[in-house]
């Protein structure tokens, strides 16, 4: 089970009215290497991985949901006071036609989220390598998002999220090292 704290992991402040940025940020909401994909990927892998790394997957998978909430907050703030006409000008006319002001899990190009973005092979090494790759790709996405805004407050939150990808990638690489060494103490060979 989870316990919810009604606050964001890191503050989200958006100081520039830029609805178009919401269209790009949604990549990290419902994109292939977004926070939803990350959370679902890690939490699902926990059942078929050695016990030693289950806790790591729980912790990081949970944190990804906290990141998802931060992205949602950014998108909401950037769009909530826009008129349909402004959304249209921002390239969000398609989104408004289908969802009005609701958020939806799709990527920056409008492709709906699909679980085919993630995999579970059941081979611990293969699964952890997917996790490492996903973290590096998410780090790159945050870089391109930071490049696309000049709002220092939005950049600040995005830089926090980018740094978490850097840390998570290292934690997963440490998990690989643990699994390389690990031998069941009950059956030494």
């Amino acid at each position: 089970m989870w316990i919810y704290e009604k606050k964001l992991q890191y503050p989200v402040r958006v100081s520039k009215c830029d609805p178009k940025m919401a269209k790009y940020l949604i990549e990290q909401y419902g994109g292939a290497d977004g926070e939803l994909a990350a959370a679902l990927r890690y939490l699902n892998q926990r059942y078929t991985i050695p016990d030693k790394v289950i806790g790591l997957l729980t912790d990081i998978g949970t944190e990804e949901f906290a990141h998802l909430e931060m992205i949602a907050t950014m998108v909401y703030k950037l769009t909530k006071d826009a008129t349909p006409e402004q959304l249209r000008e921002a390239g969000l006319g398609d989104h408004y036609a289908d969802h009005s002001f609701a958020l939806f899990y799709h990527n920056a190009a409008g492709n709906p989220f699909t679980v085919t973005y993630i995999q579970a092979k059941g081979d611990p090494i293969a699964d952890l390598y997917e996790d490492i790759a996903a973290e590096e790709k998410a780090r790159a996405t945050y870089q391109w998002l930071i490049d696309m805004t000049d709002d220092p407050d939005l950049q600040d939150s995005l830089k926090f999220l980018r740094e978490r990808e850097v840390v998570h990638a290292l934690r997963f690489r440490e998990a690989v090292e643990m699994l390389k060494e690990h031998q069941d103490s009950r059956h030494p060979y």
Binding site: P50, D51, K180, Q183, D184
Partner: peptide, 12 residues
């Protein structure tokens, strides 16, 4: 046992 294999015992 082949040295490339690792074993573990999941919680039961």
């Amino acid at each position: 046992m082949d040295a490339q294999w690792r074993t573990y015992t999941p919680w039961r």
